[in-house]
Amino acid sequence: MTNPGAANWSFDEEDLNALTRTVSRFLSETGAHSALIADRSGQLVATIGRPLSFDPMVFATLTAADFSANDQLARLIGETDFTTLFHQGEKESMYVADVARRLILVTLFDNHTPIGLVRLKMKPVVEELTVHLDRAYIRARESGSTQPNILAGAGEEIDELFNW
């Protein structure tokens, strides 16, 4: 049985490496110290750069909620969405960008990195990430699925998992 409400999707090692490479280069070009990729439902995909001092999963969830709430605000003022959000702090700031309406890229930087540089370099990075995502989707469509269904026939194992 598949859930008719939502399209499932998956990442393989190659997809993740491609996304990570692009974002790593962006970090070194801008001097931003860390980045985080989440999907639009708030699930963490990857963290890149300096290790984060907080729980990245919680951060991903709140970022997705922030983005969704801002989408609704955009609609109220007659826009379809806001593709980027900027939150400025005294020392630390974050720049959040939509990637093909599937992922969210969060860039964290301190006051040594000019926001203008992050903004300037962000656009080509988002385009490159979109190309990676499209490639993964095309591959998924052509092969019928990105990966064999790892849970196919796992009914008994699932029953055992909840045997507590």
Binding site: A7, N8, S10, F11, L16, Q43
Partner: peptide, 15 residues
């Protein structure tokens, strides 16, 4: 939308 992360070997689901 469940997300299967093959790289991290995780299945993420939302309830």
């Amino acid at each position: 939308m469940s997300m299967i992360n093959y790289a991290a070997r995780e299945i993420n689901c939302k309830i």
